[in-house]
Nucleic acid binder design. Structure first.
Lengths: 120, 120
DNA sequence: CGGAATCCTTACGGATACTG
DNA sequence: CAGTATCCGTAAGGATTCCG
């Protein structure tokens, strides 16, 4: 696939990518990014090769244990992050972005450019 | 801003773009795209220069009047679409993407590439 | 034709307390 | 340290009926 396309080309490609159920690859990704904390967690994780639960909680101000746990589980189920547990005393867990997760960055970069352009 | 950047450069730019409230331009955009029907409506509108309520309803299978109305109002409030009302008998309304809305396309294109690459 | 009004159900987000 | 378990309020999504 080309690096850059016109709007008309995009539409053509997108229409050919729809499945019978009416879902398109874009919808699936948007679903993965839905939720109040997804973006902030992914961003915090992009700043660290690996990051622990406690540090993540500090870097995402206002999040509760419950929401951090839930959101991490969703991100893991979607294959965007990796969870590695160390059974030591005290136990700890390291989270990191997968390749799939890191490859979201061109998308975030386009979103950032758009956001800066149209920021109110 | 450059056309393409490395991951590290993106992170740097993004961290400089955060406001005091902790919100970033990316979060704002993600909020605009949140909702079950946003993507499908924007996509249907990208296929037509202008489109009417009734046709839009046909092109977004399963949507109800209520949800179509609500979602269109949100998209309009966010400046992504334009609404033009013709007071004729019978009355009709034309919806179209604004420049701001059309400029989402590089984002959707990156999402599409990602989605096709990681489609399960 | 293009909605508005109403009512209903579920999902999301969150506060608090407790634990291996 | 890194979570669970419970409970709760709000908001998102939807079905149905009616209207200018």
């Amino acid at each position: 696939m080309k690096e850059r396309v016109t709007f008309e080309e995009y539409v053509k490609i997108a229409s050919n990518s729809a499945t019978e159920s009416g879902n398109c690859p874009v919808s699936g990704l948007l679903l993965m990014l839905q939720g109040k904390w997804k973006n902030q967690i992914i961003y915090a994780m992009s700043l660290n090769d690996t990051i622990r639960f406690g540090k993540l909680k500090k870097e995402v101000p206002g999040i509760t244990n419950t929401m951090l746990t839930n959101t991490l589980r969703e991100l893991e189920a979607d294959g965007l992050i990796h969870r590695e547990q160390f059974n030591e005393i005290p136990p700890h867990v390291e989270y990191s972005l997968t390749e799939k997760g890191r490859n979201l960055f061109p998308i975030f970069y386009e979103m950032l450019k758009w956001g800066l352009r149209y920021a109110t």
